[in-house]
Nucleic acid binder design. Structure first.
Lengths: 239, 239
DNA sequence: CACTTGTCGATTGGATCCAATTTAGCAATA
DNA sequence: TATTGCTAAATTGGATCCAATCGACAAGTG
């Protein structure tokens, strides 16, 4: 079997959401496990596989055109990332998202991102600032919500990149990606997004002046605004 | 291979007694994968499997008396927890620990634990305080370094337990467990440990008074002391 | 009628076999 | 001698097969 990324045959019938995911894979993967894991994670984080969706090993194997084994290994990794619930002898289910989960995610981001930003600011250089600025202008031009989320994530990470703490950054990036789940869930119902570009500009300006305290203050306000918006959406949806 | 020792509860009268019997069979695992994963993680975090150790699938399968498949699934999970490095077609190696990794770990703890503590303090009750105090006295009596690390971890977690953010707590616990790797590495060379019981007592006292700011200040000092000690050890060892 | 028991189908867990990849060793050559 | 290329052994990746477990529903029991 070749991991040519493109155009693995897709079974005719079956879960249409997964089939759509398989249809447009970009990069090439060295192992089938990598391929399945990356594709499923993308699907979950992007919201195309919504919370509660059961993931049957045999069905996935058929859709991905591999055997059940790489599927199982991929599911194990997703379980360790808390993206699916794996119950012995019962199977895997995409983890549900709730107001509590969103609050949890924001609590973690509130803790990690100020730390990353503070460590990073002294070491950012002109190139970093230029890249961050470029990402802001790209966001201004972007209309598609999917791409928008990625740009936002990259902007945040660009300001944290010089923290010199790879594990801290990896955790932060993971939580940023998780946050997208909630934002997209909100978008799917509300239609459009308020990207708070003033906050982004203010953060960048503070970083340029090496004013970590101000940058962190803006960041926390930025996170709180998003948290309140998402929380309100969940409450309104429940009530 | 049966993971429950072949004992299965027979529903009958006296189900109370039967339940007790089943309960005291001890930590039994439902699947071989769980068993392998937990054992390996324990081994890595406790330092018995030191950084750089290659983990050959076949060898592990033989040692655990299972086939290679549950070993592979366990390795996948450990990879997602950053406890091993997994390179396609090359194999798995226990991740190395270094001064940089220790600093990374402390940076994360410095971010997460104050958040957890602050969220938790308002909701701690008398029972929680009593348990925390008990853990401190247990630490005073404990001499074995392995048990000591666990008691320390449980003390910290007992103060964070009411944060009401399960994901945040799970991450925190994971990082606390990782920290043990560095502490034990240090202990193995230095012989004994300074558990900073004054810090623990001060944290507990501040928590009792619902003084989150002071508790966090003590905690940060506590973490910094440990970070400096470990970092000095790594430097001395390298230089 | 409530409650247990047994059986069957669906699904996952685990074992074994085969294929693909890496690596080390060795030989040939410049 | 250093380097390149090739072959074989070791090791991992993937496929297929069988066993164990769970859920639901039917049947028996008090």
């Amino acid at each position: 079997m070749t991991m040519d990324g493109g155009r693995r045959a897709v079974a005719a019938e079956g879960s249409e959401a997964v089939a759509a995911l398989v249809a447009d894979v970009g990069p090439r993967y060295r192992t089938a496990t990598e391929f399945v894991e990356a594709t499923l994670r993308q699907g979950i984080l992007s919201g195309r596989l919504s919370g509660g969706t059961p993931l049957r090993q045999e069905e996935l194997a058929r859709l991905f055109n591999v055997s059940r084994m790489p599927v199982r290994e991929a599911l194990r990794q997703l379980e360790a990332q808390a993206l699916i619930d794996f119950v012995p002898h019962k199977g895997a289910v995409v983890t549900d998202i709730s107001a509590e989960d969103a609050a949890d995610n924001y609590a973690i981001r509130r803790a990690l991102e100020p730390a990353a930003l503070t460590l990073s600011i002294p070491h950012l250089d002109a190139q970093d600032f230029a890249r961050a600025e470029e990402l802001i202008t790209e966001m201004d031009a972007e209309t598609e919500p999917g791409r928008m989320g990625e740009l936002n994530r990259r902007f945040h990470m660009s300001l944290y990149a010089r923290a010199g703490r790879p594990r801290l950054l990896a955790l932060t990036e993971q939580q940023l990606a998780s946050a997208d789940r909630y934002v997209r869930f909100h978008l799917a119902a509300k239609g459009q997004e308020h990207m708070a570009q003033e906050d982004h500009l203010a953060m960048l300006a503070a970083a340029r002046q090496r004013d970590a305290a101000r940058a962190v203050a803006v960041l926390l306000g930025h996170l709180d605004t998003a948290a309140v918006t998402i929380d309100a959406f969940f409450r309104e949806r429940a009530g």
